[in-house]
């Protein structure tokens, strides 16, 4: 790697972080407007991250080190590698899904390693909500059957010839969109961070570690939005994708602002229902097409 590439990577990382955190701020603003509050400024998420990064900390004596410290670092590692594999290299979709699955490990590990009962509950709920991954695999299989490849650049070039995939695979696109909704803050599927268990897996991660997790979350939001736009709309350029990202954030925040938090089993049942629908779609495509 030479310096040009290094600066490109740094730029990409900072760009993803800034756009992700601004979009999350926008998300919060729109939700506030829906609920007839003025709401915080759009840069609030960014300010939060910086504030937490410079805050004094003390580590709980119940924590299991070094896992406790490694988990926020892993969060950034996971989403940075997803960013590079997806945006820079346009590599296999399945690898990125695998990295997304590691996000569950981060949630579970954060919750468990702190030793707090709330964190543990958050971790157990994250295991429960693993049902959200099944539609994801079905989506991947459906995309593979249609395009005959899982490399993102191939999928994008397929769409330049045949038109966007969202018209051909509406059910899969819907399932992926539900995934985006469940990843956004304050979503109806956000049982992992529900306010009934204080803040779920983040309960005992504060100060610097919370700052690191926030950085990872911002990059994650950017990557997932980019993935949706690249796979189902066929736009892989990060600047051209920006208006679509804002549009999708707008839709997600309207959904999140209007719906209450579901109970854990309701959330899981809803996700399993979606999974069954997508699996039936997949089976139909395998047998008849």
């Amino acid at each position: 790697m030479d310096f040009n590439e290094f600066f490109y990577l740094i730029n990409l990382t900072v760009y993803a972080f800034l756009i992700g955190s601004l979009l999350l701020g926008l998300h919060r603003k729109i939700m506030a407007k829906i609920q007839l509050r003025p709401g915080p400024p759009i840069i609030q998420y960014l300010l939060h991250t910086l504030k937490f990064y410079f805050k004094e900390i003390t580590f709980p004596i119940t924590a299991g080190n070094p896992l406790y410290i490694f988990m926020p670092i892993l969060q950034i590692i996971v989403w940075l590698s997803a960013l590079i594999l997806a945006v820079k290299l346009e590599s296999s979709l399945l690898i990125i899904i695998g990295l997304y699955v590691l996000q569950k490990i981060v949630e579970h590990g954060c919750g468990l390693s702190s030793g707090s009962p709330y964190g543990k509950l958050g971790g157990v709920r994250s295991v429960f909500s693993a049902a959200a991954e099944i539609p994801l695999f079905a989506v991947v299989s459906t995309v593979y059957i249609v395009t005959n490849s899982l490399i993102i650049s191939d999928i994008v070039s397929y769409q330049q010839i045949h038109g966007p995939l969202i018209l051909k695979l509406p059910i899969s696109a819907f399932a992926f969109f539900i995934l985006l909704v469940s990843k956004a803050p304050n979503s109806p599927f956000g049982i992992v961070k529900g306010k009934d268990i204080v803040s779920g897996y983040l309960t005992e991660h504060f100060g610097l570690l919370a700052g690191l997790i926030y950085i990872g979350d911002a990059i994650a939001y950017f990557v997932l939005l980019w993935l949706f736009i690249a796979i189902f709309l066929g736009i892989s350029n990060i600047f051209l994708a920006l208006p679509f990202m804002i549009l999708i954030t707008f839709i997600i925040s309207i959904i999140n602002g209007l719906t209450p938090l579901l109970a854990p089993h309701h959330s899981v049942m809803l996700q399993i229902t979606i999974a069954i629908v997508v699996l039936l779609d997949l089976l139909h495509r395998v047998i008849f097409l």
Partner: peptide, 20 residues
């Protein structure tokens, strides 16, 4: 925690590999 985490990690990785 670390041992319990291993159960979760192994199952998730194996699911992805099975899909592949």
């Amino acid at each position: 925690s670390p041992y319990i985490l291993m159960i979760h990690l192994s199952s998730l990785l194996l699911i992805v590999r099975t899909v592949e």
